[in-house]
Design a binder for these strands. Structure first.
Lengths: 291, 291
DNA sequence: ACGTTATAATAACATTTGTTTTGTTTTTTG
DNA sequence: CAAAAAACAAAACAAATGTTATTATAACGT
């Protein structure tokens, strides 16, 4: 019951986000991206984390039709306890912790990495992936846009995906800016962009150009709310946070592999034949080591 | 982190349960059986649900060594938010599977991605990672070798790692074969190679050259046994198998992020300062999008 | 049985949390 | 540009939550 209400609230927030004034919008974005923390924290904690006053939270609750802030937060709390009761997939991590010492550090690292992967897979629904796959399969051209860290992800996607799809283009190539490639895009094309907050300006420029040209935008980001101004056709969300000094993209990587899987599936017989052909050609060309 | 503390507390409660007096025992049983509710509810709610007074809960907290009831409950709260974001991938996959048909294939994809990450982290012990990190930190130069799919992994490792380590070199560069770079390697250097069966001949050539020059070889592979002829100094193993037509490198990716984490940890203060400096320079240079 | 100690409930207290009020700033409208 | 309306933060207020003190009860040893 609570689950449903929670998702309905998030849906409403997402839809009405654009019409909200400054503070309420910041709250809505925070709630959309951090439903668990929002459910757990007190009104003061949430307010200070978001950077607004407490009664801004109360006003948003009233605006959404709730009598009190309590009623607004309640569905998020129920969702928390509901999700906690189901399976413990990562029990082995806890056992690691028991051993202490280096194993404990390993448990921390594993928790963080595993958490991002499972979160990415759980938050993304199969329909979004399927829709993205269909878009990509139907597109005339697919531009892959990313800079810095996520560029490696795009490279991987290109390397595997081009076997199935002859129409992939990595956007920043030939020492160009990404936007230079997107100039040739049109409404038959798809742009797949990967970036996390704070967004790379180059990537955003490319996304905006893509929308202007009428191409469909598939965005992989760590925040659904922050990406709304770009009006993506599909948004695939994965967390990137770690307890350390850099961001973790393993969640994105997992999503990309899932997307590749679905692409091959939906591509049908001929795609699978193409893959087989590639592999055959490679071993003929003495690309593999013989022991 | 919270997950782990929570399970330790529950373990303690379970063990000492028999020695507790009546009220404390009732509380302990309740907490063991209803950790989620206990984490969510207020002290009065829990007390009335259990049928004891509020300060019985406080006494139990003190008995367990906590300063306050808050500290006693905190791990359970953290575990709640943690499980909401990462806990029940298994359940979610199970639901997909129930639907049958195409949904079942998608469940398989998610299962295999998750499984590869889990196995990679579980099979690799912390000592190997720590040893690899020390080798890399002490090396004069570190050559990163990979071709095709894994090249994206090396690119990512380079992108993040060069912030901490100024001595990284991607081996296949300037349209060279990997082995061309390795020609300059010596016994003070380390070669980090990534490849899965069947091994890329180019990568293997580079590895053999590295050994001949006296450099230490760190190999990431899907098989420890098959890599033995290369006499690697350290072998990091992750499965790459999927039920589909291509290999999954998400396990390697997870291992690399773990290695990066340990590198930053062991690199100490100056490495962390370098990372901060990089980030500052980037935002100064208008590389990030302002909303 | 008696006194002592441990355990527990009640109630008083202090802190935190949610709500409402007030005044100021920002935005909108004429 | 000025007036009105909306949005907001700060602070006052009330309710809840957590903590401590007091008192009563149960368990234990001599």
């Amino acid at each position: 019951m609570g689950q449903i209400h929670k998702s309905r609230i998030i849906e409403q927030l997402t839809g009405e986000l654009a019409t909200y004034p400054k503070s309420l919008r910041r709250i809505a974005m925070y709630v959309i991206d951090n439903p668990a923390e929002f459910g757990m924290d007190s009104i003061r904690d949430s307010a200070s984390l978001i950077g607004v006053s407490t009664n801004s939270l109360v006003r948003l609750a009233k605006k959404l039709g709730f009598e009190t802030y309590h009623q607004f937060r309640a569905p998020f709390r129920e969702a928390l306890t509901a999700s906690a009761s189901s399976g413990d997939a990562g029990q082995w991590i806890g056992e690691l912790y028991e051993r202490g010492g280096k194993e404990r550090a390993r448990a921390d690292a594993a928790t963080s990495v595993m958490g991002n992967v499972t979160d990415a897979l759980r938050q993304t629904d199969a329909d979004s992936i399927a829709l993205a796959a269909d878009c990509i399969l139907e597109a005339k051209k697919v531009f892959l846009v990313a800079t810095r860290g996520p560029y490696a992800l795009v490279h991987y996607f290109y390397h595997v995906g081009r076997i199935a799809l002859p129409n992939l283009v990595i956007a920043p190539r030939h020492a160009n800016a990404p936007v230079d490639e997107i100039l040739t895009a049109d409404e038959n094309d798809v742009v797949l962009a990967i970036s996390s907050m704070p967004y790379s300006r180059e990537t955003i420029d490319a996304c905006e150009m893509a929308r202007k040209k009428g191409a469909k935008l598939i965005l992989m980001s760590d925040s659904a709310a922050n990406s709304l101004p770009l009006t993506p056709y599909i948004t695939l969300v994965s967390p990137v946070s770690t307890p350390h000094y850099f961001e973790s993209y393993v969640g994105f990587f997992a999503l990309l592999e899932w997307l590749l899987t679905v692409l091959v599936e939906r591509g049908g017989e001929d795609v699978q034949q193409r893959i087989q052909m590639f592999n055959d050609l490679r071993s003929d060309a003495n690309l593999y080591w013989k022991m």
